[in-house]
Amino acid sequence: NLPFLDTGLLYRAVGWTLREQGGDSANAIDALAACTFDSALLNNPGLRSEIVGGLASRVSVHPEVRRALDKRQKDFASQPAGAVLDGRDIGTVIAPNADVKLFVTASSEARAVRRFEEMKRRKEPANFDDILADILKRDERDQNRDTAPLKPAKDADLLDTTDLTIDAAIQQAIALVNAKKSSRQHKDPA
């Protein structure tokens, strides 16, 4: 019952807004101008499109864009009752002092299959090879950007979902969180 934020949607909203404004994703000034979007945009299913996902990855390399979105994410993460954030730099940049950090991963191929199936369910045109190539390019870009590169936090638990169903991945995530909480309670019996 914790509030949830898919931080990737913030970058997708920037990509969407940039496209609507006719901006250039390689231009930091254009990308920064697209950071002032209405929060209602986060509910737009169009943000999940492949085109917008590619734009999100390209605008996320700009330090100015990352700084513009950092406060929004940090404010969300610091809610008194807790929160869950999903994103590529949450454990390393946004919430480095989080009580529990999970670095959820899967092989590129497994992620491409999942994305391909998701697009087919939504009746969107889908080509597996194009999806896989896009995932590989995005990972390369995100892992090698200067600001907030994609990498696990040193104290994050790894959850590889390559061979897991959704239910099995959820159960494993819950087990990791419970183990971390239990370990913390044994250290701090007060």
Rank of each mutant, 00 (worst) to 15 (best):
I94S: 03
S182V: 02
Y11C: 00
D86E: 14
E117F: 00
S78K: 14
E20F: 00
A153S: 14
A148P: 01
A40F: 07
G82A: 01
E20M: 12
V59Q: 04
K180A: 14
V84G: 08
G54S: 12
D142Q: 08
I94Q: 00
A153C: 13
S49G: 06
R114Y: 06
Q21M: 13
L41P: 07
A126E: 13
A33V: 05
D99A: 15
E118W: 11
A13M: 04
N97R: 11
I166P: 10
N44I: 00
L136C: 10
I94W: 00
N144E: 03
G87S: 07
R115M: 05
S78N: 15
T92C: 05
R145G: 06
F4V: 14
L150E: 01
P152H: 09
A168R: 13
L85I: 11
H62N: 09
K180N: 11
D142A: 06
A168C: 04
Q79V: 10
I131W: 12
G53D: 02
V93N: 07
H186G: 03
A13W: 03
D163A: 07
N43M: 12
A179Q: 14
A98W: 04
N1P: 12
Q171G: 15
G82F: 01
V61K: 04
K101C: 02
V61W: 01
F76W: 11
A173V: 08
Q171I: 02
A95S: 15
S57N: 07
S182N: 15
R111C: 06
L132R: 10
S57M: 05
F128L: 13
E117N: 09
D89G: 01
E140N: 14
A112F: 00
A168Q: 15
F103Y: 15
L41Q: 07
A173E: 05
A175K: 14
Q185M: 09
R72Q: 13
P96R: 00
S39W: 08
R115Q: 03
P3Q: 13
L5E: 05
A169C: 01
L5Y: 00
F128M: 10
L9P: 03
T165A: 04
R122E: 15
